[in-house]
């Protein structure tokens, strides 16, 4: 046992630059591949609903606005989203209609502002992936 075993380390830090990042004034770099908020590319969506089915948090809602015109509305509830990225993995189109960006500073004072929605016409692009609704776990994000 040694009295004041921590002393050298403490004194060293006293004269060292603190480890602190001055956050709101200086942003921390998020690593590549950070999972932030999900987004939809309406031009690519074929409304296969794979994302809606696989979303663990009920954050994606797809409703038909006008069935005849093939107009659909997709709502992403950012207040429910758990940022797992499963929607991107489940998306069968190439390139993917769902993508996830590294945005995470979206704090707000109302949950209503955390919805994002798109009204769009279903894309007719044939998916290049083998089947429109493959296994929920496509290898490699």
């Amino acid at each position: 046992m040694r009295i004041a075993a921590f002393l050298p380390e403490l004194l060293r830090s006293l004269f060292k630059k603190p480890n602190t990042v001055d956050y709101p004034f200086k942003k921390l770099a998020v690593p590549e591949g950070f999972r932030g908020t999900p987004h939809l590319d309406p031009d690519m969506c074929i409304v296969c609903r794979a994302c809606e089915r696989d979303c663990p948090a009920e954050a994606i809602e797809i409703t038909a606005v006008n069935e005849a015109e093939k107009r659909f509305r997709m709502v992403i509830h950012n207040d429910r989203c758990i940022h797992c990225g499963q929607c991107v993995d489940s998306c069968p189109t190439v390139p993917k209609a769902m993508r996830i960006d590294s945005l995470f500073e979206i704090a707000d004072d109302s949950r209503h502002k955390m919805k994002e929605d798109w009204v769009y016409v279903r894309a007719v692009i044939k998916p290049k992936a083998p089947a429109p609704a493959p296994a929920g776990e496509s290898p490699n994000a």
Partner: peptide, 9 residues
């Protein structure tokens, strides 16, 4: 001082 000893601001 306490904070600086702990390597923060």
């Amino acid at each position: 001082v306490f904070a600086r000893l702990q390597n923060r601001m």
